Simulated assay, not measured.
Amino acid sequence: MNKVNNNVLSVPFLKSLFFTQNNWHQHGVLVHTLRVTYYTLKAGEWKFFAAAILHDIGKPSTAYKKDKEDIDYNEYSFTDHEERSYQIIKNWPFINKYTKEIVRYHYLIRDIQKSEKEDLSRFYEKKEIWEALDEDIKADLERFMIYDDLGKGKKRR
Rank of each mutant, 00 (worst) to 15 (best):
A52Y: 02
N96K: 11
Y86A: 03
Y73R: 12
R122I: 01
L34S: 08
T33A: 08
V31L: 14
D72S: 07
E83R: 11
V36D: 11
F13D: 06
A132I: 01
K154T: 13
L17T: 09
Q21L: 03
T20Q: 11
E125T: 06
E125K: 13
I88T: 05
I89Q: 10
Q113D: 14
F144Y: 12
K117Q: 15
E125Y: 09
D70P: 00
K42P: 05
K155I: 02
S61W: 07
V36A: 08
N5L: 11
Y147N: 06
F123A: 07
Y39C: 00
Y147E: 13
D134F: 00
M145T: 13
E45S: 07
Y124K: 14
D136W: 08
W24R: 11
G44P: 00
N6V: 04
W24M: 08
Y38E: 09
K65P: 00
N22Q: 07
G44W: 09
S85C: 01
Y86D: 09
R143F: 06
K114C: 05
E69V: 01
D119K: 14
D72G: 02
W92K: 08
P93N: 13
Y105S: 03
K126C: 03
E135T: 09
H32Q: 14
H27L: 11
I112Q: 10
E116K: 13
S115N: 14
T40E: 07
I137A: 04
K152T: 12
S16F: 04
K117F: 13
S121D: 15
A51W: 07
S61V: 02
G58V: 03
H27C: 08
G28D: 15
K3R: 14
R157I: 06
K65M: 09
L17S: 13
L150V: 00
A50D: 13
W46P: 00
W130P: 01
E118I: 03
Q21H: 11
D111N: 10
Y147Q: 07
L150E: 05
D119L: 02
N96P: 01
S77N: 13
F123D: 07
Y107W: 05
I57R: 06
A50F: 08
T37P: 02
D140L: 02
K117N: 12
D67Q: 06
T79N: 13
K100E: 10
E125G: 03
S61H: 10
Y124C: 05
Y64K: 10
V4Y: 08
F94P: 01
L34T: 08
D136E: 15
L30R: 11
D70M: 06
E101T: 00
